[in-house]
Design a protein around this nucleic acid. Structure first.
Lengths: 146, 146
DNA sequence: CAAAGTAGTCAGAGAATCTGACCAATGTCA
DNA sequence: TGACATTGGTCAGATTCTCTGACTACTTTG
């Protein structure tokens, strides 16, 4: 099913994304953050600095709010997040990252920086800059929350 | 958890990838190819022109061979693939795309071309070329099967 | 204020994934 | 050549992830 000669842009985007994600997971596990799953991480990643509503997490992760709730429950039990009332809406609660989550983010950010350096080494500073520029532009038409 | 000002390269790669995948799925469903799941598609996508072994599909999709077998079973029942003996190894079988799969690929390829045109319209020909170039280069260090 | 919409939960089912154990065929090398 | 390790794949069972449908509580809108 794969085109023989030339990969489509989709796969070309996916490959480095997955490579980076793998690196991050490995590093987190090494650092002792091995009590959450990829699905949980994909939700946790989207929590904003001041907390984010469940519904918004669900939308951005493109899962149902029920699924998001299920995953946040587990993150809460593992101590990665807490839920606090949303002062602006009594129906809602804000999912906030706990200290443990921010510590994990430190590790993850380190890996990202390291991998980005490796990529820049391979592409050259110029091409790396062009890549980020093109991707940032692309985001304007591919990210509904941009 | 998300960086406030600037997204990391990982998310920047993921966003357009997901947008493209969404478009492809929607178009396939419209065209009547609605009897397979995303997980099945991710495996099917990796079948080579002459068939591919289960183990290799599993590796490339980064799932266990048991899971791959489970998904291929379903694709076989839906008529997307067949399994034929591997002439070079009596243990192995080759998973081959059936006519229905190649028809679906036609549709998918059409969408990819369309989306790539849209992206090029947004980025300009020059930047689009740079993007593909950088991604192709990046593949060298991020794709274990390159 | 009534109606419609939004945030979230509960219940139940289906899909996707894993680990462990296993068999048959192939490869290795003393 | 023959024992041993490796590889391709399956079976069984459990866990995790995800969905649909139905529901409550609160908010927004006309």
């Amino acid at each position: 099913m794969v085109a023989e000669s030339e990969l489509n842009t989709g796969l070309l985007l996916f490959l480095p994304y997955r490579a980076l994600e793998n690196r991050i997971f490995a590093a987190l596990a090494d650092a002792g953050f091995d009590d959450f799953t990829p699905a949980q991480a994909r939700v946790m990643q989207r929590i904003g600095p001041d907390g984010t509503r469940l519904t918004e997490l669900a939308e951005q992760a493109q899962i149902t709010k029920q699924t998001a709730g299920f995953l946040v429950d587990q993150l809460e039990k593992s101590g990665y997040v807490t839920r606090v009332p949303d002062p602006t809406d009594k129906r809602a609660r804000l999912v906030r990252g706990a200290a443990k989550a921010w510590a994990a983010k430190e590790v993850a950010d380190g890996v990202v920086a390291e991998v980005e350096r490796e990529w820049e080494d391979h592409l050259g500073r110029r091409r790396m800059k062009q890549l980020r520029e093109a991707l940032a532009l692309l985001r304007e038409i591919t990210d509904p929350w941009a």
